[in-house]
């Protein structure tokens, strides 16, 4: 076999294997910008699940490629920044700390319900799309669950613009920013968390909710914590 022919064969093999192999993408501690909002006058604590410190998701396109994305501690950073900007007093507690021992208005437990992404070969487009479903449980100072709120966030990015790895990374960051925007916009409407400050001082407030003003400055009157169908923006 001549040198040229061998080089061609090697190149063809490399291209073929490259097309089958997919990629491993790692998020390097992305941050969200400081939100332009007024803080809610609440003392809040949160506890993160273990996978917030290291979250890896794999997606296998049958017979074609295997993609994995390592979010690292991106979720931990996201919620720390987000809730730190939303509440006047915010702390993250460890697994062994009992929130009832703390003088707080509310206790929050965010978790990841689901993480999915699609790659161009699946969607037959040039885009990567990422869907993240978080669940946010909120408890009052006495440990009573007052809200169980699922939120769906979505981000997409074109592969032609950023290259495959960067496009998937960007889609994931956009999905996390989308989640942050959704929490800022709707958390108080959906969960009524702002009423907990008054309720801590006067528990009767919870039984007789008054219109509260959310972080976006809008008057709200909502105490249920059901999923908003409009949250499923990715579908």
């Amino acid at each position: 076999m001549s040198t040229k022919l061998r080089a061609c064969a090697t190149a063809a093999l490399a291209v073929t294997l490259g097309a089958c192999s997919g990629s491993q993408v790692k998020l390097l501690d992305p941050t969200i910008p400081e939100p332009l909002i007024d803080k809610l006058p609440l003392s809040v604590a949160a506890r993160y699940p273990e996978n917030f410190a290291h979250f890896v998701h794999e997606e296998v396109v049958i017979g074609k490629e295997k993609w994995s994305i390592d979010l690292g501690r991106a979720n931990e950073l996201l919620f720390t920044q987000l809730f730190g900007a939303m509440f006047t007093d915010y702390q993250v507690i460890q697994q062994d700390t009992n929130p009832r021992d703390l003088a707080i208005d509310a206790f929050i437990e965010p978790t990841i319900d689901a993480f999915e992404f699609s790659v161009p070969s699946q969607s037959q487009t040039e885009e990567f799309a990422v869907w993240i479903r978080y669940r946010i449980k909120i408890f009052d100072g006495q440990g009573n669950e007052i809200a169980n709120w699922p939120i769906s966030a979505y981000g997409k990015s074109l592969t032609t613009t950023f290259g495959s790895d960067e496009a998937l990374r960007r889609a994931a960051v956009l999905a996390m920013r989308d989640a942050a925007a959704l929490v800022i916009l709707q958390m108080d409407k959906a969960t009524g968390i702002s009423k907990l400050s008054a309720a801590t001082r006067d528990p009767a407030m919870l039984a007789d909710p008054q219109p509260a003003e959310d972080v976006t400055g809008e008057k709200v009157m909502q105490t249920t914590a059901t999923e908003d169908p409009a949250d499923d923006s990715g579908t």
Partner: peptide, 12 residues
């Protein structure tokens, strides 16, 4: 978009 976060995100 960053300076005005989150008011010019795709959702908002």
């Amino acid at each position: 978009v960053d300076a005005l976060f989150p008011w010019f995100e795709p959702r908002t």
